[in-house]
């Protein structure tokens, strides 16, 4: 993907994010933060490619570190968000 296409995506996604997130009520701001943390664990996608490549040892070590950290983010983030939201659901 060329740079301009990437930049277009980036800028439009920021506008979308602002529109979406201003609609989240203050009551749900903590789950929003932990949930957005979980989805920022999408870095895992890049980490998997680095860790699974047959590149130099350095790349694989960096990839391994990234996989561990991003997985903590994804698993911890979604699970703790779910735990909090379940408390809001019950009456």
């Amino acid at each position: 993907m060329d740079f301009v296409a990437q930049l277009t995506l980036f800028v439009l996604a920021i506008f979308l994010g602002v529109e979406l997130i201003t609609k989240v009520p203050p009551t749900l701001h903590t789950p929003l933060m932990s949930g957005s943390n979980a989805i920022s664990g999408i870095t895992l996608v890049g980490a998997l490619i680095a860790a699974g490549s047959n590149d130099s040892v350095l790349v694989q070590v960096l990839g391994f570190i990234a996989v561990v950290l991003a997985t903590i983010n994804v698993v911890g983030g979604f699970m703790v968000t779910n735990r909090m939201l379940a408390m809001f659901k019950r009456k």
Binding site: A13, I14, L32, S36, I39, I42
Partner: peptide, 10 residues
Amino acid sequence: IITGSLVGAS
């Protein structure tokens, strides 16, 4: 790119 900017905006 998309996900990062969503989180950044948030």
